[in-house]
Design a protein around this nucleic acid. Structure first.
Length: 214
DNA sequence: GTTCTAGAAC
DNA sequence: GTTCTAGAAC
């Protein structure tokens, strides 16, 4: 009977992707930028249990309450890290754990969504406190995807792929984040993620993507 | 992060 | 006149 290599983590149980109604996802109390903190600090409330996709001692994965694609999960660190700017080399094992779990989740999602491609990564300047990793399909077919900032935050270098984050962290001991550069990236011209053609505005982009994805 | 809406862009 | 963006929110 073959044994798994020692460095390979065991299989984990993952449910079908089945997001709860929006009402379950609305946060109460605190300011909006603390919404993710509220989730990890009250992980066992009924509404938070319902929106949890996966949980372990280091992190929890929840359905994004305003998904920007058909499939969109957030992996929230239980470790007290405000965001990418605050990651240090001390956090490398934690991030490796998260990235490993995220890849397993993507492999699992691909069985339910065989047509979908997925990305795993961080927003370089996130709006909400507490480090969170996006696991998102690449269709951008969602009524919650409304403006240029939404789209560009996943389709420019504002989005830091997990692998790239880890490479930079191993090399430099931190992520180099330029707030001004990040702000400019969000204002960049709209380009289709599939064919790279330019689109004049969001309605036109969304229409184009719906055709380009077929 | 979202909602709302004034006024820019068409 | 209508569509669309972008800034305030106490």
């Amino acid at each position: 009977q073959p044994k798994a290599p020692a460095n390979e983590s065991p299989d984990i149980f993952l449910p079908a992707y089945d997001p709860p109604p929006i009402a379950f996802c609305v946060n109460t109390g605190g300011s909006w930028d603390s919404a993710l903190l509220n989730i990890v600090n009250d992980a066992n409330s009924d509404s938070n249990k319902r929106r949890t996709f996966y949980s372990d001692s280091q992190s929890m994965v929840v359905y994004d309450p305003y998904p920007k694609s058909k499939v969109h999960l957030l992996m929230i660190s239980k470790v007290d890290i405000v965001g990418p700017k605050y990651i240090t080399s001390e956090h490398i094992p934690h991030l490796q754990h998260n990235h490993d779990i995220a890849h397993k989740i993507v492999a699992h999602l691909k069985t339910q969504f065989p047509e979908s491609e997925f990305k795993i990564g961080y927003h370089s300047v996130p709006s909400m406190r507490r480090l969170h990793l996006h696991i998102i399909s690449q269709d951008f077919d969602s009524p919650c995807l409304k403006n240029k900032k939404h789209y560009n935050s996943y389709n420019t270098l504002f989005f830091i792929d997990a692998e790239n984050a880890m490479d930079e962290l191993l090399k430099n001991g931190k992520l180099n984040i330029d707030n001004n550069k990040a702000e400019q990236l969000l204002k960049a011209d709209l380009k289709c993620s599939k064919c790279a053609c330019r689109q004049q505005n969001m309605p036109k982009l969304k229409f184009h993507i719906s055709k380009c994805n077929e």
